[in-house]
C-alpha cells in the first residue's frame, strides 16, 4: 500500500462525481491510498492566471504548503486526478524552483495565513500513479473481465503532458495506450490524442468549442472506437455534453461514450458499471458494456 497526498479539485464533488466514484472503487484494491489534503482550496485553474500570476500561484501554493506540512517525511507527493489542477500545481512547483523572486513573493503572501512552502512537493497526475506505481502482477491479479472486444481511443488531453511533465512525451505520448492494452482492451490509433478539448471555450466560445470537440469525436468514430477514454474532468465534460453541437457543426451524428480511465479499470476488475456511475454520463455506454464478457 502506497500513501499519497490527494488533491481532488473542485470538479470531483460535482460534474465529475463519476470520476470520484470510480477512483474510490479502484484505488485501494490496487494499493493506492489517497489521503485528501485537509481543507484544500481551488487551484485557480487557467482563469485565474489572467489576473496576476503571483496571486494565482499563491492560492495554488496554499495547498502545497499544507501538503508539505502534513507529510510524514517532509516531502509530499501530491496527486491530482484533474489535468488542469495537475498542470497548475506542477507549474507552481517548477516556476517557484526556477525563480527565487517568485518563490519569495508567494511565501510572503502565504505568510498572511501563517503558512510557508519550502519547495519539497512533487506533483503527479493520478493516471501516472495508476500506470507507474501499481505492480503489473497486482493489476493482472485483479482483472476478472475480458475487454478484448472493446475498442478504445486514449485521449490524454493537453495539460497532463504539457509543460514540465515527467509523465510522457508532450506530443505523441504512448503510456496510456499501453495501459489500456494491459487492461485487455483494443486500442485504436488516435492521432489527436493530445489536441485541446476546447477547455472553457465551451462557455465563452461555444461555436469554436463545437468545432474542436467534433474533431476529437470524429477521429475516434472514424477509427471505430467504442469509447474515448479521458483522464480529465473538463475533457470528459466537454466531449460528453457537446456531442449534439459538435455534430451540428460537422453535419454528422456523434454518439460516443466518454469514459474516465478509472471506469475502464473498474470494468476490467469486474466492478458493476452502476458503482462506477457510468450511467450518469450523458452518452450511454450500454453498447460497450455488452461487449464485455
Amino acid at each position: 500500500m502506497t500513501r499519497y497526498t490527494y488533491y481532488p479539485g473542485c470538479s470531483l464533488g460535482a460534474t465529475a462525481k463519476p470520476y470520484a466514484a470510480s477512483i474510490a472503487a479502484t484505488a485501494l484494491p490496487l494499493g493506492i491510498e489517497l489521503r485528501e489534503i485537509e481543507d484544500w482550496n481551488c487551484c485557480g485553474a487557467t482563469a485565474y492566471m489572467s489576473y496576476d500570476h503571483v496571486e494565482a500561484f499563491s492560492i495554488a501554493s496554499r495547498n502545497l504548503a499544507i501538503a508539505e506540512k502534513t507529510a510524514e517525511d517532509g516531502g509530499a507527493q501530491v496527486v491530482a486526478p484533474c489535468s488542469a489542477c495537475f498542470a497548475v500545481l506542477n507549474n507552481a512547483v517548477h516556476y517557484m524552483a526556477e525563480d527565487p523572486k517568485l518563490f519569495d513573493r508567494v511565501n510572503d503572501a502565504l505568510s498572511a495565513a501563517g503558512l510557508r512552502y519550502e519547495g519539497n512537493v512533487k506533483v503527479r497526475h493520478l493516471l501516472d500513479v495508476y500506470i507507474n506505481d501499481v505492480p503489473e502482477e497486482l493489476l493482472k491479479s485483479k482483472i476478472t473481465k475480458n475487454l478484448e472486444m472493446v475498442r478504445l481511443a486514449p485521449y490524454y488531453g493537453c495539460q497532463i503532458v504539457r509543460p514540465k511533465n515527467e509523465f510522457d512525451h508532450y506530443d505523441m505520448p504512448t503510456k496510456f495506450d499501453d495501459y489500456l492494452e494491459l487492461l485487455g482492451a483494443q486500442v485504436v490509433y488516435y492521432p489527436v490524442k493530445t489536441k485541446c478539448c476546447a477547455g472553457t471555450f465551451i462557455t465563452t466560445q461555444p461555436e469554436i468549442a463545437a468545432r474542436m470537440i467534433g474533431l476529437l469525436l470524429k477521429s475516434a468514430k472514424d477509427r471505430g472506437a467504442d469509447a474515448v477514454v479521458t483522464c480529465c474532468p473538463l475533457c470528459q465534460f466537454n466531449l460528453d455534453n457537446f456531442q449534439k453541437e459538435a455534430g451540428e457543426y460537422w453535419n454528422q451524428e456523434f454518439n460516443i461514450p466518454i469514459l474516465y480511465f478509472t471506469q475502464v479499470v473498474g470494468l476490467a476488475m469486474g466492478i458493476p458499471p452502476g458503482d462506477l456511475e457510468i450511467d450518469d454520463h450523458r452518452v450511454s455506454a450500454d453498447a460497450l458494456l455488452a461487449k464485455i464478457v
Partner: peptide, 25 residues
Amino acid sequence: TGRLEIFPKKSKSVSDVRKIIAKSR
C-alpha cells in the same frame, strides 16, 4: 444525476484564501 452542487459548501479554506489574496494584492 446529482452533478450540480446547488448549495455551495463554503470551504473552511476561504478565510486563508482571502488573506493570501489581500496580501498578494
